[in-house]
Design a protein around this nucleic acid. Structure first.
Lengths: 342, 342
DNA sequence: CTGAAAGCGCTTACAG
DNA sequence: CTGAAAGCGCTTACAG
């Protein structure tokens, strides 16, 4: 391994001068800089990050917190996987590396200790464990953070504009002539509010049309996977067989819901219309006609990396950044002629 | 940030003694060790990895090379994502962290330079860029490596026993009474031989039955995604409309192939039987009857981490470790009564 | 514009 | 069993 001292000997300059030339800080004659950079290239010099970290306290590492408790798909989660692909790319382009933070490291070290241990410069919180008490402390630990799902005090969240999407869903179904519309949700949590926000938007939009949403038509599934959607749809439908449409908060649930509906002999959309959420590739092939909302994973990742990098650079962070979801119209929604109101 | 010097002051011992007590190396009285460990715990001491790295040259970081050129799904690749979930867990349990290696870091640094830059201790090669010349150098760069797909000189590969799976596929179809069987492949490459090995096993098994495989029945798709399967199947079927079965090297291709077959009015399995490979969840929901081979991603990840950790510990590595694929029988294969040969 | 000195937090021989 | 000394490779003030 070749060091700046080797370069110093070869060029006749001192180590600090080598350092300055290589890092471009401090005043230095253009000629010296050139000489040194050439020598470094010729010698195949690679800096040693440990030494750099030790003296600067900057590791150029971004830590990632990703615990997929809700779906248990990890890297294969319909939002997280794609988001990470893009985030990784952005962050690497900025000269940082990605490293996963964990709690079972060194017999139960906290995330924050893990960060200190590695002088980590910024944290991407893709998703935490439910109700992890450590999350509350992240906003004030001094390490820049950005979250792409959960709301955490003192941390900027870059997330889909779920409320608008919920409104859009209600609008689409209402304007297609549906009157009795079910809402198939997933656990409502204030901090990780994807389901809740979609519900709020949906409900408020219906009220716009002078319709109070009847809570009977709401069914909250107890998880985010197929079977929960199947079970939830069964309950909802047995309670409210008069619905002509249902908005489901995620495609995996929608897939289960449609499975139930098909099983009891319903046709989609002739008997009942369905809108999902996520544009989950896992579901798409199986249900190519499912209308859904696509979360802009690339955009979320890109904005998250920007916010984080800015914050590392000392720029104050925004509170929350919303990214619009895009409605993907396929053919699972039936359109009725609606009589004018007056 | 609290250091060993702080601990030294507090306990009255010297820094080296603190170091020994905390790391458990060197001789030390049990009492001193206890005192120091208690003090460390009380003070909330966290070691600084940069300093450790600098003096030991050990970073406790495993680098990951994962470039999904073939499928372009990255973390969502049907094999890689699941493999990484498990590998990450195993490696963290052993006290290492995972960090992604890249080539576009610091304007085009090589993987090996990236490793030196971070004192990386071991490399998991999930998948490289096709024909990356750097791969050939990895086996002799001095950093322990393990590969989970590609064959690389001097590097242990932990990979599905593709040849046996290919044999099994041929056996299943032959024993089900099929005589004219197509093989739908993907680019054959010697170093990344999943498709090639499956073909070899398939072909050799057929020869066992005294049947020379007619190369007419082989069609190599030019990629690993749906559309390529559709196109490949079209070519194959138009050339050989007499086939009653086809073995496809991956489910994504099989999905495309089935789409074509369905479009031209064929029934699966009545008119044509299909076996895929991967047990890809993306395809499963859409084609719940597709017989396939599941690659044991957890096992591959676990063995790969074992091999790598052993190698880091100085234990000589095996050349190649094969992990059996499991046949998942569903209902896309039709069974005929076969007359005895004699 | 360039360099001597000291320090970042740890570990490794080597004494005692 | 414990500690003084030196070193890992880099950077940061501070002089000149």
């Amino acid at each position: 391994m070749i060091t700046i001292y080797d370069l110093a000997k070869q060029t006749g300059f001192s180590a600090p001068t080598i350092s300055k030339a290589l890092n471009g800080n401090g005043k230095l004659s253009e000629e010296t800089r050139q000489t040194i950079q050439d020598a470094a290239k010729k010698a195949g010099y690679t800096a040693n990050m440990a030494a750099k970290s030790l003296s600067t306290k900057h590791s150029r590492i971004i830590g990632v917190i990703m615990e997929d408790v809700a779906m248990k798909r990890g890297f294969e989660h319909p939002l997280f996987g794609g988001l990470l692909n893009k985030f990784r790319h952005e962050i690497e382009m900025a000269g940082y590396d990605l490293l996963f933070l964990s709690k079972h490291f060194n017999d139960g070290m906290s995330y924050i200790d893990h960060c200190r241990y590695r002088d980590i410069e910024g944290i991407l919180i893709v998703n935490p464990i439910d109700d992890d008490p450590e999350m509350k402390t992240l906003g004030s630990c001094g390490i820049p953070c950005v979250s792409t799902n959960e709301f955490i005090p003192g941390v900027c969240t870059v997330v889909t504009d779920n409320e608008s999407a919920g409104q859009a869903a209600a609008k689409i179904l209402y304007e297609a002539g549906h009157e009795k519309i079910g809402f198939l949700g997933a656990p409502f949590r204030e901090n990780s509010p994807a389901a809740l926000e979609r519900y709020r938007g949906f409900k408020s939009e219906l009220e716009t049309y002078g319709k109070e949403f009847d809570e009977q038509y709401l069914e909250v599934c107890d998880a985010w996977w197929d079977q929960a959607g199947y079970d939830g749809m069964k309950k909802l439908y047995e309670r409210c067989p008069d619905i002509s449409a249902v908005f489901v908060v995620c495609d995996a649930l929608a897939f289960g819901a449609m499975k139930y509906l098909l099983e009891i002999g319903k046709n989609i959309p002739d008997d009942i219309s369905v809108i999902g959420f996520d544009d989950d590739t896992t579901v798409l092939k199986a249900a190519p006609n499912l209308c859904t909302f696509r979360q802009d994973r690339d955009k979320i990742a890109q904005l998250a990396s920007e916010v984080l990098l800015q914050e590392i650079a000392g720029v104050p962070r925004p509170e929350v950044v919303r990214v619009p979801a895009q409605y993907i119209r396929r053919s699972s929604v039936r359109r009725f002629a609606r009589f004018p109101k007056f």
